[in-house]
Design a protein around this nucleic acid. Sequence first.
DNA 1: GTCTATATTTGGATAGAC
DNA 2: GTCTATCCAAATATAGAC
Lengths: 177, 177
Amino acid sequence: MREAARLFRDKGYERTTVRDLAAAVGIQSGSLFHHFRTKEDILKAVMVETIRLNTALMEAAVEAVDAPREKLRALVRVELESINGQTGEAMAVLVFEWRSLSADSQAEVLKLRDIYEALWLEVLGTLRKQGDLQADPFVVRRMLTGALSWTVTWYKPERGGLTLDGLTDQVMAMMNL
Amino acid sequence: MREAARLFRDKGYERTTVRDLAAAVGIQSGSLFHHFRTKEDILKAVMVETIRLNTALMEAAVEAVDAPREKLRALVRVELESINGQTGEAMAVLVFEWRSLSADSQAEVLKLRDIYEALWLEVLGTLRKQGDLQADPFVVRRMLTGALSWTVTWYKPERGGLTLDGLTDQVMAMMNL
DNA sequence: GTCTATATTTGGATAGAC
DNA sequence: GTCTATCCAAATATAGAC
């Protein structure tokens, strides 16, 4: 699944063949079907596991601090880490290969995703009530989803000297809080 | 090309067949190749035309107002209009099907894209110099690219009563300017 | 659990008539 | 400029041996 995530991110789901997937783990293409019924099952498995892992990470991050503003900062930091760190391949797949999932699978995965979306909305809702946020929490979350996901296309930690903490600072600095 | 943009956005480039494309304009698949040498040429043509059109729209929008803050607002409004309005299919293709373009074609299209990226950076740079922007203009532009592009996945003008002007207001309200 | 071999389908592209 | 017919390559999935 780790190799699948990498391949799906790099080449896209459709351009990745079952032969590519098999070769990446050193087996023949036919052998893959002993483990997964279809190619799409692999995509779905990658997405489901990613969501489970990230939900846990975000819950922990939110509980580790008290102030709502710090909770938001923690969420931003975790999401940037998720998409640009070790699990970045899988997160990118979740974002960019969504359409490749069948409608039925999409519905299943959406239920899981709602759990951690609720985390964001709770924090943003609190900031709004305190008068620290002018815009609608739903809209803000969606804008942040786009902005943070998109970093995967341009953020290169090795170059430019911008760390993930630095990037988090930039995100917080550009927000009207 | 309009039909191609719609199909590429809805199903993705890879899942759209030349037979789909031909059927959408009421001809047979073989006939398509009289107009385009390859399927990829169609994708490239959609992207190039979209960039040309949008560069013109953005240049006009920026020149129509004076204050840097209003110029930024105008750019946001135009980009939201581009991605959610009539040309939205093509803009979405530009964003989400980028990887489906060959490396050579990507290089060509990038040159065109740089023209309107420069527009954004000029406006953001001015705001920064005036002290109205805390974050790095390059980072801000990239975050906005992600946030605004992403609206195509969730913004539905018919529902919720949020207009494009209202959405523009929300974006400006969430920015620290 | 993996292999080899292959069935089956699909899709991009071409040829040549009209 | 479009049609029909078809080539050819690639890709998912299966069958059965080891």
